[in-house]
Computed example of a mutant assay.
Amino acid sequence: MTICYIHTMNQKDKILEFLKRNKSVSGHELSRFLSISRQALNKHLKVLIQKGLVVKNGKTRNAAYSLAGKIKPEKRLKKQCILEGLEEHKVFNEVALQLNFRKNLSNNVLHIVNYVFSEILNNAIEHSKSENCNIEIVLDQYNCNFIIRDYGIGIFYSIYKKFDLSDEISAIGELIKGRTTTMKEKHSGEGVFFSSKSGDIVTFRSHKITLTFDNRKKDIFIEEKRHINGTEVKFSISRASKRNLENIFKQYAPEAYNYRFEKTKVFVNLFQTEFVSRSEAKRLLFGLEKFKEIVLDFKGVKLIGQGFADEIFRVFKKEHPNIIIKTENLNPVITFMIKHVVDNKN
């Protein structure tokens, strides 16, 4: 009867039942009992630990798992704020006090959460034209997460209209370069850029576009989802993260440039994997004359045409001789085309 009962359970229930009977077990014992891989087991354990049902003692292969003596549910806080007259630092201080951030987050993570939360909320206050916004903060055993959602014009639409772009998708390219702002008199355009680099996963969703920065994989993803009004920003960072806000700033505002935001990185494959024309190159280069150093990441790009390469590595370089252009993740075809253009530019 016991065997039949266990086989009708889902994997998480089986883990809990096994721990009831065995007090403390290793990951190897659980994996063998369930006949699943350690990777699959870890996914189930992570959920159970987040819910406060299971406790992990020790690290890596020597870790042991047991039932939690007292369930510690995740901490969650929801707020709705009227944006007119709202001061972002006061909201963060209130949230930090209620969730006891100073005790529950390391200093480096606290500084990052403070910076990104304040920048995103300020963006809603100054740019969204929304009357109010919803805020949700979740602190679980692994991560600190928050969502800020306004109901205004939308972040991509705002950039699209300001710079007279062809569509909202084009606004993504400007956003990820940095130093793009619709209010130059008040903002440098750096806040959203550095916010996108600071978490493990940072997602901007507006209208039908979802833009995700996965900084663990060092990649960017674009999805089309159902239409939503306004802008929703989701931020997540591990409570054990070693990320440091100062190091993130130095990466793009290094000492060589007197700590000014003069360096940016552009993911060339953001919209397509083949680039041929000069017009495509001009679209990519729009706004990059503001920087002293540009890193072009060609990861995932299959080929580029001579016109595209010539516009970047000869025409643009001739017009802006003091700008340093670096490249990453070139395949042999792209390497040949760039070399061909550079060798023949004179």
Rank of each mutant, 00 (worst) to 15 (best):
M1Q: 10
T2Y: 09
I3S: 13
I3F: 09
H7V: 01
T8M: 12
T8G: 13
M9A: 09
D13R: 09
D13M: 12
K14M: 13
I15F: 03
I15D: 02
E17K: 10
E17T: 07
L19H: 01
K20Y: 06
V25A: 08
E29K: 01
S35G: 14
I36T: 00
N42E: 12
H44Q: 14
L45V: 00
K46G: 12
L48C: 04
K51A: 13
V54A: 06
V55W: 00
V55M: 08
N62H: 10
Y65W: 04
Y65I: 01
K72A: 14
P73R: 09
L77E: 07
K78H: 09
K79P: 07
K79E: 11
Q80C: 15
C81D: 08
I82C: 12
G85V: 02
L86Q: 07
E87A: 13
V91P: 07
F92N: 04
K103I: 12
K103V: 13
N104S: 12
L105T: 05
N107K: 13
L110A: 14
H111F: 08
H111A: 15
N114R: 11
L121Q: 05
A124W: 01
I125G: 09
E126I: 02
H127E: 05
S128C: 05
S130K: 05
E131M: 15
E131N: 12
E131V: 11
N132F: 13
C133W: 00
I135F: 04
E136A: 08
L139Y: 03
Y142A: 15
N143C: 15
N145D: 14
Y151F: 14
G152Y: 01
G152C: 07
Y157P: 13
D164N: 15
L165C: 04
S166C: 14
K177L: 03
T181V: 01
T181Y: 01
K184A: 10
V192S: 02
F194Y: 05
K197Q: 10
S198W: 03
G199C: 08
T203D: 10
I209F: 02
T210G: 14
T212D: 11
T212L: 13
D214E: 08
K217F: 07
F221N: 11
I228T: 05
N229L: 12
A240L: 14
N244A: 08
K250L: 15
Y257K: 10
R260H: 09
T264C: 10
V268C: 09
V268N: 06
V268Y: 04
N269D: 14
V276I: 09
S277P: 05
R278P: 06
R278K: 14
S279G: 11
L285P: 02
K290I: 01
F291S: 03
L296C: 07
D297Q: 04
G300K: 00
G305E: 00
A309S: 10
A309D: 07
F313Y: 06
F313M: 11
K318G: 08
H320Y: 09
I324F: 05
E328Y: 00
L330K: 07
N331M: 12
I334M: 08
